[in-house]
Protein backbone atom coordinates (compact mmCIF):
# COMPACT_ATOMS: atom_id res chain seq x y z
CA UNK A 1 0.00 0.00 0.00
CA UNK A 2 1.29 3.44 -0.97
CA UNK A 3 0.39 6.43 1.16
CA UNK A 4 1.24 10.00 0.16
CA UNK A 5 1.16 12.70 2.84
CA UNK A 6 1.23 16.37 1.83
CA UNK A 7 2.85 18.64 4.40
CA UNK A 8 3.52 22.36 4.54
CA UNK A 9 6.14 24.35 6.41
CA UNK A 10 4.52 27.29 8.22
CA UNK A 11 5.51 29.94 10.80
CA UNK A 12 5.04 28.39 14.25
CA UNK A 13 1.34 28.99 15.12
CA UNK A 14 2.32 28.96 18.82
CA UNK A 15 4.29 32.18 18.26
CA UNK A 16 3.03 34.60 20.94
CA UNK A 17 0.53 37.13 19.49
CA UNK A 18 2.83 39.96 20.62
CA UNK A 19 5.53 38.72 18.18
CA UNK A 20 3.11 38.45 15.27
CA UNK A 21 4.00 41.21 12.78
CA UNK A 22 2.92 42.02 9.26
CA UNK A 23 4.88 43.70 6.48
CA UNK A 24 1.97 45.74 5.13
CA UNK A 25 3.83 46.79 1.98
CA UNK A 26 4.68 43.24 0.89
CA UNK A 27 1.38 41.97 2.38
CA UNK A 28 3.05 39.14 4.22
CA UNK A 29 3.78 37.94 7.73
CA UNK A 30 7.26 38.71 8.98
CA UNK A 31 9.03 35.71 10.50
CA UNK A 32 9.29 36.17 14.29
CA UNK A 33 12.94 36.46 15.34
CA UNK A 34 14.28 33.28 16.88
CA UNK A 35 11.12 31.24 16.26
CA UNK A 36 11.85 28.47 13.74
CA UNK A 37 9.10 27.35 11.34
CA UNK A 38 7.27 24.08 11.91
CA UNK A 39 5.34 21.51 9.91
CA UNK A 40 1.73 22.70 9.98
CA UNK A 41 0.27 20.86 13.02
CA UNK A 42 -2.65 19.22 11.16
CA UNK A 43 -0.16 17.95 8.56
CA UNK A 44 1.83 16.36 11.36
CA UNK A 45 -1.38 14.63 12.43
CA UNK A 46 -1.70 13.40 8.82
CA UNK A 47 1.83 11.95 9.02
CA UNK A 48 0.84 10.23 12.27
CA UNK A 49 -2.29 8.79 10.64
CA UNK A 50 -0.14 7.38 7.81
CA UNK A 51 2.35 5.87 10.25
CA UNK A 52 -0.44 4.20 12.25
CA UNK A 53 -1.54 2.44 9.05
CA UNK A 54 2.09 1.55 8.32
CA UNK A 55 2.39 0.06 11.83
CA UNK A 56 -0.83 -1.93 11.47
CA UNK A 57 -0.67 -3.15 7.89
CA UNK A 58 2.64 -2.13 6.41
CA UNK A 59 2.77 0.68 3.86
CA UNK A 60 5.21 2.89 2.06
CA UNK A 61 4.79 6.47 3.26
CA UNK A 62 5.91 9.20 0.87
CA UNK A 63 5.84 12.80 2.06
CA UNK A 64 5.54 15.66 -0.42
CA UNK A 65 6.22 19.24 0.56
CA UNK A 66 6.10 22.36 -1.56
CA UNK A 67 7.42 25.75 -0.61
CA UNK A 68 10.33 28.09 -0.54
CA UNK A 69 12.92 28.73 2.16
CA UNK A 70 12.35 25.21 3.43
CA UNK A 71 14.38 24.39 6.54
CA UNK A 72 15.78 20.89 6.07
CA UNK A 73 15.46 19.91 9.77
CA UNK A 74 11.82 20.95 9.68
CA UNK A 75 10.69 19.28 6.47
CA UNK A 76 12.65 16.13 7.38
CA UNK A 77 10.64 15.69 10.59
CA UNK A 78 8.16 13.24 8.98
CA UNK A 79 11.15 11.09 7.97
CA UNK A 80 12.43 11.05 11.53
CA UNK A 81 8.95 10.04 12.70
CA UNK A 82 9.07 7.04 10.37
CA UNK A 83 8.07 8.10 6.84
CA UNK A 84 10.01 6.42 4.03
CA UNK A 85 10.59 9.07 1.44
CA UNK A 86 10.54 12.86 1.07
CA UNK A 87 9.85 14.74 -2.16
CA UNK A 88 10.30 18.50 -2.26
CA UNK A 89 8.66 20.62 -4.95
CA UNK A 90 10.97 23.56 -5.39
CA UNK A 91 10.80 25.99 -8.24
CA UNK A 92 10.46 29.77 -8.46
CA UNK A 93 7.62 29.15 -10.89
CA UNK A 94 5.49 27.81 -7.99
CA UNK A 95 5.69 31.09 -6.07
CA UNK A 96 2.75 33.48 -5.66
CA UNK A 97 0.20 30.71 -6.07
CA UNK A 98 -3.12 29.99 -4.35
CA UNK A 99 -5.04 26.91 -3.20
CA UNK A 100 -5.71 25.91 -6.81
CA UNK A 101 -2.11 26.12 -8.05
CA UNK A 102 -0.90 24.31 -4.92
CA UNK A 103 -3.43 21.50 -5.31
CA UNK A 104 -2.59 21.27 -9.02
CA UNK A 105 1.18 20.99 -8.44
CA UNK A 106 0.70 18.45 -5.64
CA UNK A 107 -1.69 16.38 -7.76
CA UNK A 108 0.85 16.31 -10.62
CA UNK A 109 3.58 15.25 -8.20
CA UNK A 110 1.34 12.54 -6.74
CA UNK A 111 0.69 11.21 -10.26
CA UNK A 112 4.43 11.14 -10.88
CA UNK A 113 5.00 8.97 -7.79
CA UNK A 114 3.20 6.22 -9.70
CA UNK A 115 0.97 3.95 -7.64
CA UNK A 116 -0.95 5.76 -4.88
CA UNK A 117 -3.71 4.31 -2.70
CA UNK A 118 -4.29 6.87 0.00
CA UNK A 119 -3.49 10.58 0.13
CA UNK A 120 -3.51 12.24 3.53
CA UNK A 121 -3.44 15.98 4.17
CA UNK A 122 -4.00 18.16 7.24
CA UNK A 123 -7.55 19.58 7.42
CA UNK A 124 -6.11 23.08 6.84
CA UNK A 125 -2.72 24.77 7.03
CA UNK A 126 -1.97 26.87 10.11
CA UNK A 127 -0.96 29.91 8.07
CA UNK A 128 -3.79 30.70 5.64
CA UNK A 129 -6.39 28.42 7.32
CA UNK A 130 -8.13 27.67 4.03
CA UNK A 131 -8.67 23.91 4.00
CA UNK A 132 -9.03 23.69 0.23
CA UNK A 133 -5.89 21.93 -1.01
CA UNK A 134 -6.62 18.39 0.17
CA UNK A 135 -10.13 18.35 -1.29
CA UNK A 136 -8.80 20.10 -4.39
CA UNK A 137 -6.27 17.32 -4.96
CA UNK A 138 -9.11 14.78 -4.83
CA UNK A 139 -11.08 16.82 -7.34
CA UNK A 140 -8.12 17.16 -9.72
CA UNK A 141 -7.34 13.44 -9.47
CA UNK A 142 -11.04 12.58 -9.82
CA UNK A 143 -11.11 10.46 -6.66
CA UNK A 144 -13.36 10.50 -3.57
CA UNK A 145 -12.49 12.42 -0.40
CA UNK A 146 -13.55 12.61 3.22
CA UNK A 147 -12.84 15.62 5.46
CA UNK A 148 -12.09 16.19 8.31
CA UNK A 149 -11.26 12.85 9.88
CA UNK A 150 -10.05 11.67 13.30
CA UNK A 151 -9.38 7.99 12.61
CA UNK A 152 -8.27 6.08 9.51
CA UNK A 153 -8.11 2.35 9.10
CA UNK A 154 -7.07 0.56 5.90
CA UNK A 155 -9.29 -2.33 4.86
CA UNK A 156 -9.13 -4.38 1.69
CA UNK A 157 -9.24 -1.88 -1.17
CA UNK A 158 -10.99 0.75 0.92
CA UNK A 159 -10.50 2.89 3.99
CA UNK A 160 -12.75 3.18 7.01
CA UNK A 161 -12.66 6.63 8.55
CA UNK A 162 -14.33 8.59 11.33
CA UNK A 163 -15.43 11.98 10.02
CA UNK A 164 -15.75 14.71 12.63
CA UNK A 165 -19.20 16.37 12.58
CA UNK A 166 -20.57 18.94 15.07
CA UNK A 167 -22.48 16.45 17.23
CA UNK A 168 -20.08 13.50 17.08
CA UNK A 169 -18.69 11.54 14.16
CA UNK A 170 -19.72 9.52 11.11
CA UNK A 171 -18.13 6.20 10.24
CA UNK A 172 -17.54 6.22 6.49
CA UNK A 173 -16.11 3.64 4.13
CA UNK A 174 -14.61 4.84 0.91
CA UNK A 175 -12.88 2.94 -1.91
CA UNK A 176 -9.21 3.68 -2.60
CA UNK A 177 -7.58 5.65 -4.05
CA UNK A 178 -9.01 8.42 -1.90
CA UNK A 179 -8.02 11.64 -0.18
CA UNK A 180 -8.60 11.94 3.56
CA UNK A 181 -7.90 15.14 5.51
CA UNK A 182 -6.91 14.75 9.14
CA UNK A 183 -7.99 16.77 12.18
CA UNK A 184 -6.38 17.17 15.59
CA UNK A 185 -8.90 14.80 17.22
CA UNK A 186 -6.70 12.00 15.83
CA UNK A 187 -4.50 12.41 18.91
CA UNK A 188 -0.92 13.51 19.51
CA UNK A 189 1.60 12.71 16.76
CA UNK A 190 4.52 10.53 17.86
CA UNK A 191 7.90 11.96 18.72
CA UNK A 192 10.87 11.35 16.47
CA UNK A 193 13.17 8.72 17.95
CA UNK A 194 16.95 9.13 18.01
CA UNK A 195 17.18 6.25 15.56
CA UNK A 196 14.63 7.96 13.34
CA UNK A 197 16.49 11.26 13.44
CA UNK A 198 19.73 9.54 12.44
CA UNK A 199 18.05 7.63 9.63
CA UNK A 200 16.41 10.85 8.42
CA UNK A 201 19.74 12.67 8.44
CA UNK A 202 21.14 10.11 6.01
CA UNK A 203 18.14 10.30 3.65
CA UNK A 204 18.37 12.80 0.81
CA UNK A 205 15.07 14.29 -0.31
CA UNK A 206 14.13 14.06 -3.98
CA UNK A 207 13.70 17.53 -5.48
CA UNK A 208 11.27 18.06 -8.35
CA UNK A 209 10.78 21.22 -10.39
CA UNK A 210 7.64 22.24 -12.27
CA UNK A 211 9.09 20.62 -15.40
CA UNK A 212 9.80 17.35 -13.57
CA UNK A 213 6.12 16.98 -12.69
CA UNK A 214 4.95 18.11 -16.14
CA UNK A 215 3.02 21.09 -14.78
CA UNK A 216 1.48 23.51 -17.28
CA UNK A 217 2.96 26.99 -16.76
CA UNK A 218 -0.51 28.57 -16.86
CA UNK A 219 -1.68 26.51 -13.86
CA UNK A 220 1.10 27.21 -11.38
CA UNK A 221 2.37 30.16 -9.35
CA UNK A 222 1.11 33.65 -9.97
CA UNK A 223 -0.03 32.90 -13.52
CA UNK A 224 -2.36 30.13 -12.38
CA UNK A 225 -3.75 31.89 -9.31
CA UNK A 226 -7.47 32.42 -9.31
CA UNK A 227 -7.64 34.56 -6.17
CA UNK A 228 -5.67 37.71 -5.42
CA UNK A 229 -4.67 39.03 -2.01
CA UNK A 230 -5.42 42.75 -1.74
CA UNK A 231 -4.58 43.43 1.86
CA UNK A 232 -3.29 41.66 4.96
CA UNK A 233 -3.75 43.41 8.31
CA UNK A 234 -3.99 42.89 12.05
CA UNK A 235 -7.49 43.68 13.37
CA UNK A 236 -7.64 46.24 16.16
CA UNK A 237 -9.16 44.98 19.39
CA UNK A 238 -10.06 47.81 21.72
CA UNK A 239 -11.09 46.23 24.98
CA UNK A 240 -10.10 47.49 28.38
CA UNK A 241 -10.10 44.73 30.95
CA UNK A 242 -11.49 45.67 34.37
CA UNK A 243 -9.57 43.62 36.95
CA UNK A 244 -11.27 42.28 40.07
CA UNK A 245 -9.43 42.99 43.30
CA UNK A 246 -9.48 41.98 46.95
CA UNK A 247 -7.36 41.20 50.02
CA UNK A 248 -7.74 37.49 49.37
CA UNK A 249 -8.50 35.50 46.26
CA UNK A 250 -11.99 34.77 47.64
CA UNK A 251 -12.63 38.48 48.09
CA UNK A 252 -11.45 39.15 44.55
CA UNK A 253 -13.83 36.45 43.31
CA UNK A 254 -16.72 38.16 45.12
CA UNK A 255 -15.57 41.51 43.73
CA UNK A 256 -15.69 40.03 40.22
CA UNK A 257 -19.29 38.94 40.76
CA UNK A 258 -20.22 42.38 42.13
CA UNK A 259 -18.58 44.18 39.21
CA UNK A 260 -20.40 41.94 36.74
CA UNK A 261 -23.66 42.54 38.61
CA UNK A 262 -23.12 46.31 38.45
CA UNK A 263 -22.61 46.01 34.68
CA UNK A 264 -25.86 43.96 34.49
CA UNK A 265 -24.01 40.93 33.09
CA UNK A 266 -25.36 38.58 35.73
Amino acid sequence: MNIVVCVKQVPDPETPPSSFKIDSVANRVMPAAGVPPVISPFDEHAVEAALRIKDAKGAKVTVISMGKDLVMDVVKKPLSMGADELILLQDEAFEGGDSFTTAYALSMAIKKTGQYDLILCGRQAADWDVGQVGLGIAELLGIPSVAPVKKVEALDGRVKVERVVPDGYEVIEVPMPAVVTISNELGEPRYATMKGIMAAARKKPTVWTSQDIGAEASKIGKAGSRIKLLKLFIPVREVKCVMAEGESIEEAAADLALKMRAAKII
Binding site: P16, L256, R261, I266
Partner: peptide, 30 residues
Protein backbone atom coordinates in the same frame (compact mmCIF):
# COMPACT_ATOMS: atom_id res chain seq x y z
CA UNK B 1 -2.13 35.80 29.39
CA UNK B 2 -3.44 36.99 26.03
CA UNK B 3 -7.04 36.35 27.08
CA UNK B 4 -6.95 39.50 29.28
CA UNK B 5 -6.48 41.56 26.10
CA UNK B 6 -9.95 40.60 24.87
CA UNK B 7 -11.77 40.30 28.21
CA UNK B 8 -14.01 43.00 29.71
CA UNK B 9 -13.48 41.62 33.21
CA UNK B 10 -10.56 39.68 34.60
CA UNK B 11 -9.23 38.06 37.72
CA UNK B 12 -5.66 36.87 38.23
CA UNK B 13 -5.64 33.79 40.40
CA UNK B 14 -5.96 30.03 40.72
CA UNK B 15 -9.36 29.02 39.38
CA UNK B 16 -9.69 26.31 42.04
CA UNK B 17 -9.92 29.05 44.66
CA UNK B 18 -11.74 31.58 42.48
CA UNK B 19 -14.61 29.54 41.07
CA UNK B 20 -16.25 28.28 44.30
CA UNK B 21 -16.18 31.77 45.85
CA UNK B 22 -17.35 33.36 42.59
CA UNK B 23 -20.19 30.84 42.19
CA UNK B 24 -21.28 31.45 45.79
CA UNK B 25 -21.41 35.22 45.29
CA UNK B 26 -23.24 34.88 41.96
CA UNK B 27 -25.82 32.65 43.64
CA UNK B 28 -26.35 35.25 46.36
CA UNK B 29 -26.67 38.15 43.91
CA UNK B 30 -28.90 36.30 41.48
Amino acid sequence: ANIFKVAQFGLVGDYRKVLPAFAQKCKELM
